[in-house]
Amino acid sequence: MTFTILHEDGEVAVAGPTIAVGDLAAATGWELKAEGLCRGDVCVPVRDRAALVVDDAVAIEALGAALHRPVVVDADAGVAAIGADPVAVGTALRDRQAPDFTLPTLSGEQFSLSSVGRKKKVLIAWASW
């Protein structure tokens, strides 16, 4: 049975809710380095490495705790979700910064807010429900 992780860039299938350190970057985007957990230019220091890495593997709950992000793990159903960084979300809203996002259109093409460039924009969130 595969296990699915829903994270901020999409979803990825892994072997289970515990990920080998060497597979962490491919599975979650986060790489364990000397500085901490790193993704692009961002590194989150890991205070308690022993709590994060057990038998050379990282449990998703432990990853969420180390990144200070909310996580939901359903081991029986084979799916987990890692949320956005609450501090980053709060800071952006307070500072009125519009976060970028990349989402598919109906035809499956990816669209990013940042591709619009210097225009006035109105986001309209809607739904059929």
Binding site: L6, G83, Q97, K120, V122, A125, W126
Partner: peptide, 25 residues
């Protein structure tokens, strides 16, 4: 996945958010 709802604090529809040329809300 309601990612934009998570990023922008959207709790209902229809909701509008205005963003200027410098990507400020």
């Amino acid at each position: 996945d309601h990612r934009v709802a998570e990023q922008y604090g959207i709790i209902n529809v229809p909701t509008a958010i205005w963003i200027d040329e410098d990507d400020r809300i």
